[in-house]
Amino acid sequence: MADALPDTPSCAAYDPTLNPGSYGYRPSLAWGLVFTILFVLIAAGQLFHMIRTRAFWTFFFIMGALFEIIGWVGRLASYWCPYSRDCFLMQTASLITGPGWAQAGIYLTLWVVIRSVGRHVSPFPPKTYLAICFCIDLVCLSLQAVGGGLAGAAYSNGTSTQPGTTTMVVGIIAQLTAAVLFSILVGFVIYRGGSALRSNRPLFYMTAATVFATMMMIMRNVYRSIELTEGWRGYLITHEKYVLALDALPMVLAMGIYVIFNPGAQFEKTATAEQQQELAERDQPQKNAVQRYLNL
């Protein structure tokens, strides 16, 4: 249990034989730098696309990346101060909260796809599904925030962290359930709108990115659910390779794919293609008239 750890000066030299620290290991400096830089690049890329395309709804991805940056900065600081409870709680709260913002961005991306392809591809009206998803996401974030606050207070006071941990686990499992249900909706949209998506490359890319990102979010949520169920001194949480491979990497991929196939940029291409098609259809009668005149 985290509350059973001895008090050690925050920036004392790391000695796992005397005190394994809040993590159970000393966070890697190299990996901390790598993931901090990656999330900074993702945030910068999303900000660039948002300003250029004026698709301001993509700010959810920026917020998700910012929380990831804060979390990984906390882990970086923990390399030099391995016994700092503030740094540990900072990274815990941020890395649990950030994915909720990214998930909201994924919901909105599918909403844009449905609006572009047509209402018929969704079993629910787009606004209804979006409202339901946002409500679920808000509840999940609230549970995780409250749980993190309770666990953090208990951790600092040296009391049991179990009530807060349980609340966090409920929030993460609820988020996992929402991601699975959302993936079913994505499959429904692909099934009904397959031909339209195949004929519209930007929409196809947006949908493919959404499928990939959703898979990464499900992987991450499964890991976090199991990790916290084991407790703060469980095997997964005390071995850094798992948080790197099953939390950090999936989040980089889930948000990074939207920098490459940015929803705002892809939607801009779709709108441009539709305008060109509309102009071509409008000019076709005139072209036909000219052709008939030339054939006289």
Rank of each mutant, 00 (worst) to 15 (best):
A104T: 07
F59D: 00
G105Y: 06
L89C: 03
Q46M: 09
F48G: 02
I37G: 03
W101E: 03
L89Y: 07
I70H: 02
A104D: 05
G32K: 12
F48Y: 14
R52I: 03
A55Y: 14
I70W: 04
L66T: 11
L38D: 05
M90A: 09
L110W: 01
V112D: 07
G98I: 13
I106C: 05
M50T: 15
I37Y: 04
L38Y: 07
G100N: 15
P99D: 12
Y79H: 15
T36V: 07
I70C: 08
L95Q: 11
F39S: 03
T53S: 10
Y107I: 01
I51F: 15
W31L: 10
I51W: 15
V73P: 03
V73F: 11
A43W: 07
T58K: 07
Q103P: 00
R52V: 10
F61H: 00
W101I: 01
I42C: 10
L47M: 15
Y83E: 10
A43E: 07
R75S: 08
S78L: 00
A77C: 03
W57V: 08
M90Y: 06
I106K: 03
L108P: 00
Q91M: 06
C81W: 09
V113R: 06
H49R: 05
L33S: 11
V113I: 15
W72A: 01
L47Q: 11
I42Y: 10
V73H: 10
V40A: 15
L110G: 00
V34F: 12
R52Y: 13
V112S: 08
V73C: 11
L29N: 10
S28N: 12
L110H: 00
D86C: 04
A65G: 09
P82K: 09
L38Q: 05
R54A: 13
F61E: 00
P99C: 12
T109P: 02
G45N: 03
S28F: 08
A43Q: 03
L108N: 01
L29V: 05
P99I: 13
V112G: 03
R85C: 04
F35E: 05
L41G: 00
L47R: 11
I37F: 12
V112L: 06
A65C: 09
A43V: 02
I51L: 15
F35A: 04
S78E: 04
G74A: 05
M50F: 10
W57K: 03
I70A: 14
V40H: 03
L66W: 08
Q103V: 08
A30D: 10
Q91K: 02
G74L: 01
S84N: 13
R85E: 15
P99R: 12
S94L: 08
S84K: 07
G100P: 04
I37N: 01
W101K: 02
T58G: 07
W80F: 14
